[in-house]
C-alpha cells in the first residue's frame, strides 16, 4: 500500500499504541487488562506497521529470530516461574504459599508472581500475533499474485 496518509498516521500512532500495550501488560494486576489483552495490543501495533508500510519495514521492527525468541521465552518463563514456586516450597505455580513477596495490594510492585507471569504472557501473545501475521503474509508473497496468470 502506497498511501501517504496511512503511513504518516500509523507512524504517529504506533508509539502510542505500543506504550499503551506495555501499560496494559504492566498494570495487569491493578486495572482491567493483563497479558493477553496487552500483548494483543502490542502485537497489533507491529501488524499495523507492516500493513501501512510493507513487510520488510515490519520485519525491521522485530525480526523473526527475536519474535520466536520472545515466543519460546514467554512460555519458558511462565513454566519457570511455576518451578521457582516449587523450589520455594509451594505447589506448582503457587504464589503466596511459595512465599513470593506480595507487597502492598494496589502498588505497581505487588502480587508476587502475578506481574511476572503477566509480562511473560504478554510477550508471548505479542510475538504470537506478529509471527502469525508475518507467516501468512510471506506465504502469500511467495506464492505470488493470484490475479496474474502463470505467476
Amino acid at each position: 500500500m502506497e498511501d501517504q496518509i496511512t503511513r504518516l498516521t500509523s507512524r504517529l500512532v504506533v508509539p502510542f499504541i505500543q506504550v499503551y500495550g506495555i501499560y496494559i501488560i504492566l498494570h495487569g494486576h491493578l486495572s482491567p487488562g493483563g497479558g493477553f489483552s496487552g500483548g494483543a495490543i502490542f502485537g497489533a501495533s507491529l501488524v499495523l506497521m507492516a500493513l501501512a508500510f510493507n513487510l520488510s519495514a515490519g520485519v525491521k521492527q522485530i525480526s523473526h529470530q527475536s519474535a520466536s525468541l520472545m515466543e519460546s521465552g514467554g512460555a519458558l518463563g511462565y513454566a519457570l516461574v511455576g518451578l521457582i514456586a516449587l523450589l520455594w516450597g509451594g505447589n506448582y505455580l503457587a504464589n503466596r504459599a511459595a512465599s513470593f513477596p506480595l507487597g502492598r495490594a494496589g502498588e505497581l510492585f505487588s502480587g508476587g508472581a502475578i506481574p511476572v507471569i503477566t509480562v511473560f504472557v504478554g510477550m508471548k501473545v505479542a510475538s504470537t500475533m506478529v509471527t502469525l501475521f508475518y507467516n501468512l503474509i510471506e506465504g502469500e508473497a511467495k506464492v505470488g499474485d493470484p490475479e496474474k496468470p502463470g505467476a
Binding site: G28, H29, L30, P32, L93, N95, R96, G111, G112, I114
Partner: peptide
Amino acid sequence: TGVINTVSGIITDYRA
C-alpha cells in the same frame, strides 16, 4: 493473591 484486580488474581494465581 495481593492484587486488586480480582480477574487477574484468578487467572494467574488461583488458576495459573
